[in-house]
Design a protein around this nucleic acid. Structure first.
Length: 228
DNA sequence: AATGATGTCAACCGCTATGTC
DNA sequence: TGACATAGCGGTTGACATCAT
């Protein structure tokens, strides 16, 4: 379901990622972080452009990503936030731990868009007449996550992105009114693993091997890669 | 069973925002 | 302050899957 791999005129590989490339990118980012996406493929031994590496990591390889079906809560949050924010997929994604902007965008276009046209009801309302707890909750949205829904429904009309607190976590907290006292603890603790330190601190995997172990350049397949 | 239409989603492209010199 | 480099965002594309005829 993806583009077939090919090389452009500059020798940059495009299209679907191979398992080997995924391993290389994952291993490199886990060990060194990604201070410079443009340089990263060179050092990771990938024939990709930095942009492609970043996208692959962000949308597919990074830890804590949720795959698979969306919960009704997630659908509701997407619907509500889209009403409020429009196509600000990255902002919406900040409020859905484990989901990427790209994934949400795709999901919106393929699942939710139709419900927004002349119909204020969500798929939940239309198809299932569900209650909030009818469907089992998935990891990451369990426990007190109903607070999120309640909050999201009542998003403030003055969605604010505070100048004093410009971290995405705090901004999205405001966007959802999640910082109301009664909501903040439970909701935000749920997001904690994703919200701050992971993206601001270099990630060192416990299992990370040495560069030598991970990048035996001489044995790196038949695909071309940058030399340095 | 064959074929065309539609849905899905990973990946690409181009633009803008931000940071650095 | 302007130029350049880089990161990030949102729209679009392309190929496979599924559905309808």
């Amino acid at each position: 379901m993806v583009r077939a791999p090919y090389f452009d005129k500059n020798g940059i590989k495009k299209g679907a990622w191979s398992e080997e490339e995924d391993k290389r990118l994952t291993a490199y980012v886990e060990r060194h972080g990604h201070p410079n996406w443009r340089q990263l493929p060179k050092f990771a031994g990938l024939a990709r452009c930095g942009k492609s590496c970043r996208l692959r990591w962000m949308n597919y390889l990074r830890p804590n990503l949720k795959r698979g079906n969306y919960t009704q809560k997630e659908e509701q949050i997407i619907t509500d936030l889209h009403k409020k924010l429009g196509n600000k997929w990255s902002l919406i994604a900040e409020n859905l731990p484990g989901r990427t902007d790209n994934e949400i965008k795709n999901y919106w276009h393929s699942h939710l868009k139709k419900f927004s046209k002349g119909n204020e009801n969500t798929p939940c309302d239309d198809e299932l007449k569900c209650t909030e707890f009818e469907r089992p909750m998935e990891e990451g949205l369990s426990g007190d996550s109903h607070h999120i829904l309640e909050s999201s429904v009542s998003i403030s009309s003055e969605t604010s992105y505070s100048e004093d607190n410009n971290s995405p976590s705090f901004s999205s907290c405001h966007a959802l009114n999640l910082c109301k006292e009664e909501d903040s603890v439970a909701s935000w603790e749920t997001f904690d693993g994703l919200s701050s330190s992971f993206w601001t601190q270099p990630f060192i995997s416990e299992n990370a091997l040495s560069d030598q172990d991970y990048f035996p350049i001489s044995s790196y397949g038949t695909e071309p890669f940058f030399l340095w």
